[in-house]
Every structure is written in C-alpha cells, then in structure tokens.
Design a protein around this nucleic acid. Structure first.
Lengths: 124, 124
DNA sequence: GGACTTCTTCGATGACCATCGTACGAGATC
DNA sequence: GATCTCGTACGATGGTCATCGAAGAAGTCC
C-alpha cells in the first residue's frame, strides 16, 4: 500500500493555544531551521526530511525538525518510513497574523541582498 | 549642563546593512528582551535602562540591552550617567518591512490571551 | 571634592544547544 | 525473511547563553 503507516507512530505536537511566540521566534532564529521553513513555504507542500539538502548529519537534522515541531512551526506526520513536514500556516496565522509572512519576506529580502539567492526564491 | 556626556562614551552599533534577520529573531526570542522591546514600542520614546522594571540584576539587564543593541534592534546613547534606549524602527522597517510590527502585534495578542495584560498594551 | 546614581566589566556557574557518530527501530521491497 | 531506506535515540563534546555578585568607571549634584 501507499498509505499504510501514518497510523503507527504519532508525534507530539503542541496544541494551537500552547504555541508560544518566543519559542517560534527562537525556532526561526537558527539559519538552518529558517532555511527549512523557507523551503517549506516556497514549495507549498509537505516534504520529507531527506528532501532538504542540509549541510549536517541526520542526527542534527532530526534535532532541528524536532525543534520546529515542538515550537509549533511545523506539523510532522509519518508516511511509511518517511516523515512528512508541513508548515502550520493556519495555526500560526490565527495566533500571530502576518508574522510568518513577514519573516519569510524578510528572509527572502535578506537572501537576495546577501547574494544567497538561487536557494528558495524561484523554487529551484 | 544637560547635554554634556553624549560625546564621551560611544557604543558600537551594527550598520543597517549588517543587521541579520537571524540575530534579530534571536534577540526577540528572549521573554525579557521581547518585553523591553514592547515597552519601547508602546512608549514611542527613548527610555533609560532603569526605567524598565526587569526581574533581574543590573548585570543581567546590561547583558540583555547589549544583545538588543548588537543585533540592531535598539540604539543606545549615553546622556549623562543614563543610557537612552530607542528602537531602530527605520532601519528595521527598511530591511524587514512589517516584521517588527508583526512581532509586536503577536506579542500583544499573546499577552492578552495569556492574561499577561496590564503590562504594555494600555501604557501603564 | 565627596556622595550618589547609573551602568559596565569580570569571573563564575549552571543551563541549554548544535553537532557528531554509532547503534537501533519501523516500513518497504524483493 | 533479508535487505534497504528513512528517521530515532543515546551519549559525548564544545560552544553559547542567562544569571549572579562584587568591584569599578562615568556623570551629576551639593
């Protein structure tokens, strides 16, 4: 099958009302995690952890995804052996209107300004 | 005199183009620092360090103000023995349009939601 | 000049964090 | 069931960070 596993392992997520601004800002203040969120936003789709080309080992990668999940920025769901990551846009928008978009726009701007372009903007 | 000292001690600030989004987010991700920024924004004026009622010692306070200054969030200027703190609204707005306001609005919203009200919103 | 106020600097401390490597667990495929 | 892929868990490590207390520097006021 193709939709077997999502049932097996469940991951702990904070409820919408437990998401804290400080935690979200902290999650986004790491370059790697900000990068992850930017790609997630740019693709507007759920992505597996391994689809991100991160310059760190898998352990470290797991760590960063967990920080993003525990802060309420992303939602993670198992699909077979893969773990799908999706931005919690609705929850964030409801709690902090405009915040995520401001941060994403700021990140795009800064990337363009610093020449880090060719990463997310166009969509690869 | 009343405007003697501003000349004496100068404090290092990042130029506008050296302000990094990640550093700003990191600076804002600490509850105490976010509190400082909220008060600064609410009062729309420069405030001395001691006008903030922070539940920490002066050393710690100095530390937090320095993080805010070095990340480019606030501008600090000596005025006699006091140190005036002002939000770098223009610089931040120019670099990251809408970001600061989103964060401030998010902070107000969260404070209201969590019952931390009576702090900044009304202005005392 | 002496006392007072305001903030700084230094050293220490305990917490947290980003990183790694290795070993393991859960599904998928054959 | 063997094997492969994807991600987790654990332990270690080096770095940063928030915090404090005590001593000091800069300015103001009498």
């Amino acid at each position: 099958m193709t939709e077997t596993a999502a049932t097996g392992r469940a991951l702990p997520h904070p409820d919408r009302e437990h998401i804290r601004l400080e935690s979200v800002l902290h999650a986004l203040s790491d370059p790697l995690r900000l990068q992850i969120v930017r790609e997630l936003a740019a693709r507007e789709a759920e992505l597996t952890c391994s689809q991100f080309d991160l310059p760190v080992t898998k352990s470290t990668s797991t760590h960063h995804f967990r920080v993003l999940r525990e802060s309420g920025v992303v939602r993670q769901v198992y699909r077979g052996t893969a773990k799908m990551n999706g931005l919690r846009r609705d929850d964030l928008e409801s709690l902090f209107p405009g915040l995520l978009d401001s941060v994403l726009a700021a990140a795009d701007r800064q990337a363009a300004r610093l020449g880090d372009a060719a990463r997310v903007p166009a969509g690869g």
